[in-house]
Design a binder for these strands. Structure first.
Lengths: 154, 154
DNA sequence: CTTGCTGCAAAAGATTTGCACGTGC
DNA sequence: GCACGTGCAAATCTTTTGCAGCAAG
């Protein structure tokens, strides 16, 4: 079932490209697959490495191009995380909160109705048309890193 | 009163540096003043330009250094905004939402109790120790840009 | 065929760094 | 006087771009 879900995700991305009139290339197939199957929130470098395993001659520029195309089509979103060198991408395009550990840089998703409440309030009070691609990021220390730092000292 | 507020803000930043045992230099004074007086959310380039008006020989590296020092001390926070080339800084270190216009790149602050509610819920459900330096960013279209796009077409 | 896509390599551009000099304390 | 801060310029590093050749439709 997990595998089935991944396949659906890959195909969903490919369908979005197809419906936008984009050509179906082997590179794009591999990139979509890599995005769909990547656990978590890959960077372009992550995807480049993954795809290169099967497609050694692929260029970074192609990965950047495809990822950017998918982003324009709303299939994925950019996660801009302070102090991370690379830009992460998120396949979950529903507005949600990303919680980032300051130490291990782990990213955890949090879905909560509060996000919608927040968007509603922001729309009402600011007059902005809020787009769904919310960049809601909270920074903190994850349970593991908290434990480790407690064990060692301070 | 507005001027008085700015002065206080400048001095607050200087005091933070002083209390951290940092040396009091003319460059840092000008940078703190530029940050305190800047309307909105300056980038390093903004601050560099502002300071250079009074201090022509200052180097960009010094601005980067000082801004980074202030950030480490918690006096300002970084705003990572998708698709903006420069990193913006925010002198408001209370957790709040930044609403960013996709067109004119205007940034508007929104203070609401929902942020605290959200942080509480995130702490409880994720087990993370959430830090106050929340990067809560919502993207949208500001009233002005909305009006302009309506007037012109579509 | 025609146009978009890819690969390559170089460019761009923000931020960081190394080092020597100057300056606060 | 000592160590930190500054200035300068070069380095770094991610992302973007120009262009020629290739391939999808």
């Amino acid at each position: 079932m997990a595998q089935e879900k991944k396949d659906n995700k890959t195909e969903a991305l490919l369908r979005i490209l197809e419906e936008a009139g984009k050509r179906n290339t082997a590179q794009r197939y591999e990139i979509c697959k890599a995005i769909a199957e990547y656990p978590g929130h890959p960077t372009v470098a992550d995807l480049y490495d993954t795809v290169r395993a099967r497609f050694p001659m692929i260029s970074q520029a192609t990965v950047y191009n495809t990822v950017d195309t998918l982003r324009e089509l709303g299939a994925i979103t950019r996660l801009e995380i302070a102090n991370h060198d690379h830009t992460h991408y998120d396949t979950d395009v529903h507005p949600h909160v990303n919680i980032v550990c300051r130490y291990c840089e782990r990213i955890q998703d949090l879905h909560t109705d509060l996000v919608h409440t927040l968007i509603d309030e922001a729309s009402r009070t600011s007059g902005f048309d809020i787009r769904p691609e919310a960049g809601l990021i909270l920074y903190g220390i994850c349970p593991d890193c908290k434990k480790n730092s407690t064990e060692t000292e301070e």
